[in-house]
Design a protein around this nucleic acid. Structure first.
Lengths: 177, 177
DNA sequence: TACAACCAGTTGCAAAATGCAATCACAATG
DNA sequence: CATTGTGATTGCATTTTGCAACTGGTTGTA
């Protein structure tokens, strides 16, 4: 049988607690979100295109931690010797359902803006079937796993982003009139 | 139409971000978890029965914040002039599906202990139907809403806790032999 | 009525994390 | 050979956390 040895590195063996030890801060999930939904794969993209204005030292620290925890991976970009490509691991990709539910909760209970919550709405309405489709897409992009079935039409991320653009255009028109 | 006024209180209107602004730290969800799954309703219960050893000033601060955010409510305990009863609000109760998925992710990817993850396993296996049953139970206990159908047999929390006790007893036996 | 136990916190202080702006070393581009 | 792009690091002020002791009051008990 397995022997319980005391573990000073963790507060407890509760799954909720352990998840919070890995992801329980104001920035870690923001970084994963940008990689997953915004397809940000480079440091600069994550830094300068981030909605919340993450600082470069915080970003560097979170990438280091997520890497150490195996939520993301890092490899060299062949096109540029100093460029690194960050990818989600399977462990990271499987956070998608968590994002879907967190997004749904936030949308229901917090003062979200329409354009930034349209993706969460579609993800909620699409349900587990859509989540699985998106995760399969992420496995292609981040793990290089080829799909069993070739995909027809735009991917999930593209559809989500199209909806975002649609809201923005409608808002822009409304502002002019 | 609604006018966008600049909002210095929030980093962005993204539902993920706003949720992190409310719950994105190492303790807030621990407190909600103990109220939800451990049925802790008093300060001392939350403090001294907490697995992770939360400090009293942190607990006081998180209760204050969760109260301000409307995730929990507070009222006097009629049996004791100094005793306060903390309850989940509907907003707090609806975090249950989030807990279920976070628990499932932690159980799959992190070094959980069997006895502390058996509840997460049952919650995952039970799916949305079990979550809904548990939320209905929480509404009774925390909001005082009477069920449409009278319940037969032990509630969800009791069943989860029974499973926990079962694992603990089996472990205790194994340790002796 | 004295007294211990219980109640929800608060206080003080050291350590760690965060936020911000400037800067770094190197690589590619024109 | 200067400019821009790259993933970061550094220094410093502010904020948050963690820990232990303490507070002012209430309740139960001898």
């Amino acid at each position: 049988m397995t022997v319980d040895k005391e573990d000073t590195t963790h507060r407890s063996g509760c799954p909720i607690n352990l998840t919070l030890e890995v992801l329980g801060d104001k920035w870690s999930l923001i970084v994963v979100r940008d990689m997953m939904f915004g397809n940000r794969r480079h440091f600069r993209e994550l830094l300068s295109q981030n909605q919340e204005g993450i600082a470069s030292n915080i970003l560097a620290d979170r990438l280091r931690r997520l890497l150490a925890e195996g939520v993301i991976s890092k490899r060299d970009d062949p096109s540029h010797k100093q460029k690194a490509i960050y990818s989600l691991t399977e462990k990271g990709i499987e956070l998608l359902p968590v994002f879907a539910l967190i997004g749904a909760w936030g949308r229901k209970w917090l003062p979200v803006t329409e354009e930034l919550s349209i993706r969460a709405q579609l993800l909620e309405e699409g349900g587990p079937a859509l989540w699985e489709e998106f995760m399969e897409e992420l496995r292609e992009e981040h793990l290089g796993i080829m799909p069993t079935l070739p995909r027809a039409g735009p991917g999930v991320r593209e559809r989500l982003h199209a909806a975002y653009r649609e809201v923005m255009e409608r808002k822009a028109k409304a502002a002019v009139c």
